[in-house]
Every structure is written in structure tokens, then in C-alpha cells.
Design a binder for these strands. Structure first.
Length: 417
RNA sequence: CGGGGAUUGGCGCAGUUGGCUAGCGCGCCGCGUUUGGGACGCGGAGGUCGGAGGUUCGAGUCCUCUAUCCCCGACCA
């Protein structure tokens, strides 16, 4: 990506209508654009981060044996009336509209009901199970109050997975494996150290659901954390009985602010019974399908990472999800252009994502933008590079650069992430 | 949805007790000098002050309504 041809621009001024760190930085660095409160567009750089996160999540979900699909945003009223969740008094985040012929439609804020209806067409026998599917979808929720930048919007990208099992044991087994897969996801995006499995409200069907909470000062949730056991309890279910039940000691817990980056639910057979989704088991009996669901807010995850990794100069992306691995700076105008082009092509040819700052601006501006965008590695070439053959390389958080020859540089940059 | 704050060129802001052609910084365009941490000089373009209504000789400044944005709270499968 050549910056001279890039679409977005960085800006020095902090947007006045944003308070959240993630939004301030992402807007300044040109990753997102605010369309209205709680609604953001993802610009080329921001989209790269989103896609990198999706790739990691996709790999882990595929590893569970789940298949990717894509549900519809427009939802028929009838689907949601089955469980009573069409009612605004029950679900207060619906966006609703009407077709030209007067038919009611809603915009999907979740897809459990929709998937149950769909799956009932395909699942008839125990031979059809177990089954799991997932999607990356834009969820639309008419929140009373949007806040915290991309961490809580009215329109956001979510990965939701649904698993259909024959019985509770089968469900539990998948649930457990999914939990491990989720932890790997947070690990891979750089949040592993600070992300904890958290007991939270289970809603109408079970006592607990499990959340994945990342400890961060900007979080909206409060959890009670046992660091040694790497377990936490959300304040919404925190009481003496629950602690006793979970075998946690009050004295081992610290109260911390955190951001929810995932939530998984065990519905047991309740949803299947409620929505009349049954299969015929081996023994010839008609039994309800067991459902569990698994969500990760992809755009929120990006926001949490932005909140988590930054300094006074800007963003600091973990390599695995950074929009590019290298920020290439040429100093010296036309005199180093050929050298810059050569290195750009060489790195790109080796599969390294590069942002090439080939703009005709002063060095300071390039350095500042490299830092603001939070690209992991910065390579600087100047007239001296031509004669010495040494390329200056500096990590985003490193104080001073090191120098490598071309061969070593290519090897270092194209090495495994 | 309750409470608080805000809205003036693309962005960030100033604008006295109502009073002349509405300013500043950044950004943008042109010319020149610059080139390792967001350079400098000169010359330009660009706003009718969120919207509607009202008070007044006169409204960015006062009043009413309204829209939008931010924050706190409530809410949050």
C-alpha cells in the first residue's frame, strides 16, 4: 500500500465528539470514520485489522469443525414471535421496518431464532448431528445510548456460532472445546494475558453463561478476578452462594474493570423445545435439539485492542492483526525512490504487508504517522543506505533502531509472525 | 429514557453588556526556501454561525421549539 495513493489521511487534531481512546486514535490514524453516533465506517486500514482478526477467528472456528455461512439481516416477524422476542417490551434493541406491501421486518440483532428455523429444515435424524455453523455478520441494535467508540455501537460486526447437539453431554463437550478455542483466539490477537473466563448471568435457561473478559480500565464491566485460577465472576452474579458453588475464595479475588470480548451460552434443550426443533434419535424417539451459542464482537475486539495497546504517540498493533507488518520510509525524495521501490517490491513479493510512505512530505511527518498507525516495524532508507547497504529497522516500541543488510532484513521481516 | 454539557469554513477553537466587511490555529491551493521527529516566508480559496420561528432599528450573541453530538446514570443474550 503506497501512502501517496491511499484513501484516508491522518490528522493531528483530536475529534471533539469522541471521548473514548479507541475512537480518538482510530479516527486520527484514519482507520475508521464516524457516520453517526454508534455507527462507524471501516476505512482501508481499519478493514485490514478487521480482516486479520476474522482470519484468526475463522481458523479457530474451522478447527472446531464448524462451517461458515451467512444469515440475512432482514428478519421475518414470525421467526421471532415463536419465542416472544419480537415484542419490543422483551427485546428493546430492535430496528424494525416494513416492506412496501406492509409486511413487518426486523433487522437482525442476533440470529439464534433464525438459525433454529433454518436448521429445522435440514436436521431430521441423529445422523445429521452434531452440527455447528458460524458467521461474521453486521448486527444492528437500537441501543438507547451508544458509547465507547467502536466498543458499543448500534451497528457492529460479530462472529456468532451456533452448535446443535443430540444431548447435554455432546453439547458440554463442544462447549468445552469452544472455550479453549476462544482462549486461543484472544491469545493470538495479543490479549491472552489479560483475558479471563468469567461466570456471568445465564439468562432464562441456565444459571451461568461464560464471558471472556479483558481486564482494561476502559471496560464497562466489573468482575471479581482470581488471577491464579484465571477465573472471574461478573458482578451481575457475584454473591456468597455463587462463590461457594464455584469454589472461589473472596480473599483471592480482586475487583477490576473489564471489557467483554466474548460470550458463550448453553441453552440445553430449552430452545429446541420452545421452537419445536426435534430430531429422531437412534432409539426412534423424537427429541429436542440441544443448542449452544458462541459470540465474539469482532469490531469491539478491535476497539479493546486499540484501548489496550497504545502510547502517547498512537496505536501499537500486535503483529498478528496489524494492518501491515512494515512501515517503509524513504528520506531523500527522488534520490532514494528507486531503492524504496525495490525494497517495497521485494518485501511485498515475500508476502510481507508493507505501508510504503512514498509521500513528498518531511521525515518528521512520516515518523509521526508510522507511530500513530501503530505499525510493528519501521524501515528507513536514505541516501546512505545506497552506499552502506544497511537498512535501518526499528520496532514500534523500541527506543533505537538496528541496522541490517538486505538479505537479513528480508529474512527477519518475512519470518513467521 | 432521566440528568448535565455542546453545536461558528474540512478539523480544532475564539467571538466582551446585542452594534460596522464573523476571527485564529491546523489542513487545502500557488510560488519560493527547506528535508532524520508533524518546517518557514509570501500570496490565495473557503463559513451566514445546526434548523425553524420570534423579540429588536439591528441577532453568532436574547426567547421558544426542534435536530444532532458527548458525558453520567438506567439498560445491555
Amino acid at each position: 500500500m503506497r501512502l501517496s495513493q491511499s484513501f484516508s489521511k491522518t490528522t493531528k487534531t483530536i475529534p471533539a465528539d469522541e471521548q473514548a481512546t479507541n475512537a480518538k486514535l482510530l479516527i486520527r490514524a484514519g482507520f475508521i470514520n464516524k457516520e453517526m453516533a454508534g455507527v462507524y465506517a471501516y476505512l482501508p486500514l481499519g478493514l485490514r485489522v478487521i480482516e486479520n482478526i476474522k482470519t484468526i477467528v475463522r481458523e479457530e472456528m474451522n478447527g472446531l469443525g464448524a462451517s461458515e455461512l451467512l444469515m440475512s439481516s432482514l428478519q421475518p416477524k414470525e421467526t421471532w414471535e415463536i419465542t416472544g422476542r419480537w415484542d419490543d417490551a422483551v427485546v428493546d434493541v430492535w430496528f424494525k421496518s416494513k416492506l412496501k406491501n406492509g409486511t413487518d421486518v426486523g433487522f437482525g440483532w442476533s440470529h439464534e431464532e433464525a438459525l433454529m428455523v433454518m436448521i429445522s429444515k435440514f436436521v431430521k435424524s441423529y445422523r445429521d448431528l452434531p452440527l455447528s455453523v458460524y458467521q461474521f455478520q453486521t448486527k444492528l441494535r437500537n441501543e438507547l445510548r451508544a458509547k465507547s467508540g467502536i466498543m458499543r455501537g448500534r451497528e457492529f460486526l460479530m462472529k456468532d456460532m451456533y452448535a446443535f447437539s443430540r444431548n447435554q453431554a455432546e453439547l458440554d463437550e463442544f462447549y468445552e472445546r469452544s472455550q479453549q478455542a476462544y482462549l486461543r483466539v484472544y491469545d493470538r490477537v495479543g490479549l491472552g494475558q489479560d483475558t479471563f473466563v468469567t461466570f456471568a448471568s445465564g439468562g432464562a435457561f441456565t444459571q451461568f453463561s461464560h464471558e471472556f473478559q479483558t481486564v482494561t480500565a476502559s471496560g464497562e464491566d466489573k468482575i471479581y478476578l482470581d488471577r491464579a485460577k484465571r477465573l472471574a465472576v461478573n458482578e451481575e452474579v457475584y454473591n456468597d452462594d455463587v462463590l461457594k458453588q464455584l469454589g472461589l475464595n473472596k480473599s483471592d479475588l480482586e475487583e477490576v474493570k473489564s471489557a467483554e470480548v466474548g460470550n458463550i451460552f448453553n441453552f440445553g434443550s430449552a430452545k429446541g423445545e420452545q421452537m419445536d426443533v426435534y430430531f429422531t434419535d437412534e432409539d426412534g424417539e423424537r427429541k429436542p435439539v440441544f443448542l449452544s451459542s458462541y459470540g465474539i464482537g469482532i469490531s469491539r475486539l478491535m476497539g479493546v485492542i486499540a484501548e489496550h495497546f497504545n502510547d502517547e504517540r498512537g496505536l501499537i498493533w500486535p503483529e498478528a492483526i496489524a494492518p501491515a507488518k512494515v512501515y517503509l520510509i524513504g528520506i531523500g525524495g527522488d534520490k532514494v525512490a528507486a531503492l524504496g521501490d525495490e525494497l517495497y517490491n521485494l518485501l511485498t513479493g515475500n508476502g510481507v504487508a508493507v505501508i510504503y510512505d512514498d509521500r513528498d512530505v518531511r521525515p518528521g511527518e512520516k515518523f509521526a504517522d508510522a507511530d500513530l498507525m501503530g505499525i510493528p516495524w519501521r524501515i528507513v532508507i536514505n541516501e546512505e543506505t545506497n552506499t552502506t547497504g544497511n537498512y535501518e529497522v526499528k520496532g514500534r516500541t523500541e527506543k533505537s533502531p538496528t541496522f541490517l543488510n538486505k538479505q537479513a532484513l528480508i529474512e527477519k521481516m518475512s519470518g513467521a509472525k
